[in-house]
């Protein structure tokens, strides 16, 4: 059941990305181009996603545990550290260069563009490299 529920969640997520326009880098870059022909679509995506999640989480957390696990695994870190700041900035630069954040990158694989496969493989390399940065430095 865990597998089926995760698959359904992924399908819903991918359909949402597709409907939202996020599987088109031109739309994403159009939102990021505030000094050009600005395209506000991503604001609507964020508003719909954040509001739905905010309401839904509160409803879900009334229960004592998830359906198929022992506890809710929610990050409890609150510290603002250099890793968070530098990581977010580097991610933003990469997002601005090509117009792909991780979800749309995966969702775009079925489009058959070879450079999307290269981007996803490079992203995996980046995850691997990032995991090797010692916790105290950076």
């Amino acid at each position: 059941m865990k597998m089926v529920t995760a698959l359904l969640a992924g399908l819903l997520f991918g359909l949402g990305l597709s409907l939202a326009g996020m599987t088109d880098p031109a739309v994403v870059l159009g939102f990021l181009d505030v000094a050009g022909a600005w395209n506000p679509r991503l604001l609507f995506v964020m508003a719909g996603a954040v509001l739905t999640t905010a309401i839904g989480y509160r409803w879900v957390w009334r229960g004592s545990r998830p359906w198929f696990d022992d506890s809710f695994r929610v990050p409890d870190a609150t510290r603002i550290d250099p890793r968070l700041v530098f990581g977010a900035l580097l991610f933003g630069v990469g997002w601005g260069v090509a117009g792909y954040c991780p979800g749309p990158a995966f969702a775009s694989l079925s489009g058959g563009y070879s450079s999307v496969f290269v981007l996803v493989a490079s992203m995996a390399l980046g995850w691997w490299l990032g995991a090797r940065v010692p916790a105290r430095s950076a």
Binding site: A47, T53, G56
Partner: peptide, 19 residues
């Protein structure tokens, strides 16, 4: 885009509720 966002949110809620 708004509907797509709502679907992304529903997916997040579903994953929290289930797993």
């Amino acid at each position: 885009s708004l509907m797509g966002g709502v679907m992304i949110g529903l997916s997040a809620v579903w994953l929290m509720a289930a797993l």
